[in-house]
Design a protein around this nucleic acid. Structure first.
Ligand code: FES
Ligand code: FES
Lengths: 149, 149
DNA sequence: AAAATAAAAGACTAAATTGTCCTTTAATAT
DNA sequence: ATATTAAAGGACAATTTAGTCTTTTATTTT
């Protein structure tokens, strides 16, 4: 569904959001540990999120990544996905057309409703909703079936 | 959403189905022309579909690809996708877990309904439905925004 | 039987994605 | 000031996906 970069990025962002809500910064080491993802690769992804203005970072001791409460409330999954995947989920076609324009792919009609629902979901789900659930212990950020031998 | 191989494969299969319903075999040249896809790559994909028992093929003049009426009626999009993508869409997680098992990813709850709908759609949409629509002139197999300078 | 046709098969190249490593820069603490 | 810490940055390696090219095999036509 999503690229690895996007998966990792979502997981990291949610962890950072969770920590920021507790007034804590999250360091790379910590993020990588709690998500079980490749450190150097995650560093790149975090960098991208900082560049995009989604996360903020400070260097040095006591440094790490954070995200403001305003952003936690306002940033939607769609923005995260767009930052990490580009246009791949931006109002586009299931079968690879650039957009569902004038002429339409063979799956357009069958999947129209489903697609609207999915894009709506991405557009309406805030980081806050997701991070809150995580704080309540619903859901995990680290998967056994991934890396980590 | 889907890989190129899968996109191309779906488009090709639908064209072959359309032609088979008219009692015509479809050759690679023709398929490539009508879908606007890279010929040699499409050949690989068609081969895979033949191996999977979805399409049949005959060599030599008057040869080409076909699909039986029974298969047109019974094969669902899910089978096609599974053949061309492996398990990537097989009852699995939006965020990359192998399956929505005991512990669940942060998107599981929000997207559960949507995902069920999508998997249901893949499972319930037959080639016949899609090919019929194409025969009626609804939908296109060749995209301007793709290759083909 | 030969010539022509079209799929099968396999080896290969190109590009994108994923992942690693190593150096630099900024912040803090001693 | 200097040593330490942690992110930033860039160059690289590995893997996967996408795409090409060339030869072989099966079928049909002449
Ligand atoms: S044209 Fe393909 S989903 Fe709309
Ligand atoms: S666990 Fe991720 S969608 Fe179910």
């Amino acid at each position: 569904m999503f690229s690895k970069a996007c998966e990792y990025g979502i997981r990291a962002t949610l962890y950072v959001a969770m920590q920021s809500m507790e007034g804590q910064r999250a360091g790379l080491r910590e993020i990588v540990d709690v998500t079980g993802t490749p450190a150097a690769y995650m560093a790149k992804i975090l960098q991208k999120l900082v560049h995009a203005g989604i996360l903020d970072s400070v260097r040095g001791p006591v440094g790490g990544f954070g995200i403001s409460r305003i952003k936690i409330d306002n940033i939607r999954l769609a923005e995260l996905v767009h930052t990490l995947e580009g246009d791949r989920f931006q109002g586009t076609c299931l079968l690879g057309k650039k957009s569902c324009g004038d002429t339409v792919c063979p799956l357009h009609n069958e999947f129209l409703e489903m697609k609207e629902e999915m894009l709506g979901m991405l557009e309406n789900t805030s980081l806050f909703e997701l991070a809150s659930q995580l704080s309540l212990g619903l859901g995990t950020l680290k998967y056994r079936d991934e890396g980590e031998t």
